[in-house]
């Protein structure tokens, strides 16, 4: 391509890109390094390598309770988001109904809307209908906010799918129900897995919406948050490192799945985030 002819003569741009990467990764590296630092968080240079903080972390039963809470929340948020994101993507792809444009905007809004607004308005709803704040409200909040992610992911999968396949199935005598399970669903399977991974990770890390909807039982990020107010300890570095490693692993799997199904996976991923990404296809 034309780019390759120039790739060798852009030392300045290359250096700038390197600087950008250093900026993106510097805090992450610091965080990880200090999780092994014997003399606690901060100070320079780090001194005394140790696994103490990880030992302390694994012995911290109250923290692991919150991990379990987070996993439960994330798993159920995935179920809600996929359960509604799948029909929502199908509806946006193939149904016409009054208010469709508004529906699309509403579904996608939490993708870009600051978490505080989603969290607050749901808080008022739950208080209004007399629901006690608990993990259930958190699950409903995460599920609702993340339908947007499920919808964009699955919609991208639908766009890529050859519509004639479903027609062929109907043509061969399978009704709509059979066609969905035998043709549409297998075609979307990778999109669904990718969406589930991303939603799981995002839910596991979510803090802005959770902040308003949490009851007595904390999720992991909220537990970390409340501990931060009491002061920072390398134990938090250690759990943060583990969270980070888990996120990186799921994100990389998610990315691989997407690129495997999408012709130009990177661009698809990117445009899926744009609010207008579902325009023009209706």
């Amino acid at each position: 391509m034309s780019g390759t002819s120039q790739s060798s003569r852009s030392p300045f741009l290359g250096a700038y890109a390197l600087f950008a990467y250093l900026f993106l990764y510097f805090p992450i590296v610091v965080l990880i390094v200090y999780s092994f630092n014997g003399s606690g968080v901060g100070g320079f240079p780090p001194s005394g390598w140790t696994l103490d903080w990880y030992r302390q972390l694994f012995a911290d039963a109250s923290l692991w309770d919150t991990v379990l809470n987070s996993v439960i929340v994330a798993a159920l948020a995935v179920a809600i988001a996929l359960g509604l994101g799948l029909p929502a993507a199908l509806a946006l792809d193939r149904a016409q109904f009054p208010g469709k444009a508004l529906f699309r905007r509403l579904v996608l809004l939490p993708l870009i809307l600051p978490g505080i607004i989603t969290g607050l308005s749901l808080l008022m709803l739950f208080v209004g209908v007399g629901m006690k704040l608990s993990l259930v409200t958190v699950i409903l909040g995460h599920g609702t906010a993340l339908i947007s992610v499920a919808t964009t992911e699955i919609f991208a999968g639908l766009q890529k799918m050859d519509r004639a396949q479903e027609e062929a199935s109907l043509d061969l005598g399978a009704n709509h129900w059979k066609t969905f399970w035998r043709i549409t669903f297998p075609n979307l399977r990778v999109s669904l897995i990718a969406a589930a991974l991303l939603i799981f990770t995002l839910s596991l890390d979510e803090i802005a919406v959770t902040f308003f909807l949490i009851g007595r039982d904390n999720t992991l990020p909220l537990e970390i948050w409340s501990r931060l107010r009491r002061g920072i300890t390398p134990e938090i570095n250690a759990i943060s490192t583990l969270i980070l490693l888990f996120s990186i692993a799921t994100i990389l799997i998610w990315y691989r799945l997407r690129t495997r199904t999408q012709l130009a996976g990177d661009v698809q991923t990117a445009t899926a985030l744009l609010p207008s990404s579902l325009e023009g296809e209706t």
């Binding site: 004639a164 199935s169 043509d171 009704n175 066609t179 035998r182 297998p186 075609n187």
Partner: peptide, 29 residues
């Protein structure tokens, strides 16, 4: 409805089901 018509189609894009083998494609109907 389409799925009850004694009519079959050969699609321009062929619309072969990518997740099924040749045998399963042909056996589908």
């Amino acid at each position: 409805p389409a799925y009850r018509r004694q009519v079959n189609t050969v699609f321009q894009s062929y619309a072969i089901f990518p997740h099924l083998s040749v045998f399963d494609n042909v056996a589908y109907g």
